[in-house]
Design a protein around this nucleic acid. Structure first.
Lengths: 143, 143
DNA sequence: CCAATTCATTGGGTGTCCCAACGATAAGCC
DNA sequence: GGCTTATCGTTGGGACACCCAATGAATTGG
C-alpha cells in the first residue's frame, strides 16, 4: 500500500492530463498539414455537425471562451471555411455555417485526426480501446 | 456506422482532454486551500519523492519547461517550502530539497488531491476506476 | 586541451482559460 | 405598454501552460 501522494504521477488526474497532452499534440501536428489549429478544427467540426448555430452555442458545446471564439471564427471566416450570417429570428445571434470549402478541409482533417487518435491508442488492443472510450465517456457525461 | 468526424466530441483525444481538464480544475481548486498552484504542488511532490534533485531532472520527470521551473521554484523557495543548494559534485546543478514546512504542506495537500481525484472518478465503480487507471498507465508508459 | 553537452536562467511568443464590461437585442412580468 | 432581467457578440485585461532560442558557467568526451 503506497502512501497517497508519494507517487503524484500515478494520480488519475495527472495521468489523464499527460495522455490528453499527448493526444492534443498528435492531433495538432496532424491537422497542421491543413493549416488549422486544434480549436479552429474543433469549431469547424462542431459547426458542420450542428448546422447553422450561434457562436454562444458553439462555445458552450466545446467549452470555448466567447472571447476566443471571436478570434477563431474570424480566422475561419477569413480563410473562407465558415460564414457568419445575421440570424433573422434573433438579431443578436450570428448563424455560423460551413462553406463548401470548409467542408472539404474538414473532410481531409477527419482522416488526419483519426490517424492521430489511432496512434494515441496504439498501445491498446481494440477491446481495450473500446473499454477506455466507454469509461472516458462515462466520466465526461456523468457529472 | 457514424462518419469519422461527425462527432468530434467522441474522439479519444477530445474526451481525454475534457476529462483531464475537469480533473485539473478539481485538483487546482482543492490545493488552492493550501495556497499552491497545480504545478507548484506537482513540483513540490516530485521534489519530496525524488530526494535532492536537479531542476532539469524535475522538469524532465514532470514535463515542465525549464523556464517555468525557475518561476515555480522561486515561488516555492520564497514560501519556505523548498531549498536550492549548490550541488558540490556538479556546480552547475541546484540540489532541490523539501523543507519540513514543505513536507507538512505536502502532507495536507495529499488528502485534498486524493479527495479531488475521488470526485473525478466518482461516476465509476471501484473496478472501473482500476481499469481506467491501468489503461491510462499503459498509454502513458508505452509510447 | 579542445569540442560538445548540460545546467540554470532570461527572453519572446502562442494558446487556453477566467473575470468584467459594453451596446444591442430579446424575454419575462406586472 | 413599460420595466427589469437576461443573452449575444465583442473588447479588454490578466494568469497559466507550453514552445523555441540564447546566454555564461561548468562538466564531459575524445
Amino acid at each position: 500500500m503506497t502512501s497517497p501522494l508519494q507517487h503524484l504521477q500515478s494520480l488519475p488526474s495527472w495521468l489523464a492530463g499527460r495522455v490528453a497532452a499527448r493526444g492534443r499534440g498528435l492531433v495538432a501536428d496532424a491537422i497542421a498539414a491543413e493549416g488549422l489549429k486544434l480549436m479552429q478544427h474543433a469549431v469547424l467540426a462542431a459547426t458542420a455537425e450542428y448546422g447553422p448555430v450561434a457562436q454562444a452555442d458553439l462555445g458552450r458545446r466545446l467549452s470555448v471562451d466567447p472571447k476566443d471564439m471571436v478570434g477563431i471564427l474570424n480566422h475561419l471566416q477569413q480563410a473562407g471555411l465558415v460564414l457568419r450570417t445575421p440570424d433573422p429570428a434573433d438579431r443578436r445571434k450570428n448563424a455560423v455555417t460551413v462553406t463548401p470549402e470548409g467542408a472539404a478541409v474538414l473532410r481531409r482533417c477527419a482522416a488526419l485526426a483519426e490517424a492521430a487518435n489511432n496512434e494515441l491508442l496504439a498501445p491498446l488492443t481494440p477491446d481495450e480501446q473500446t473499454q477506455l472510450m466507454a469509461l472516458l465517456t462515462r466520466l465526461h457525461e456523468a457529472p
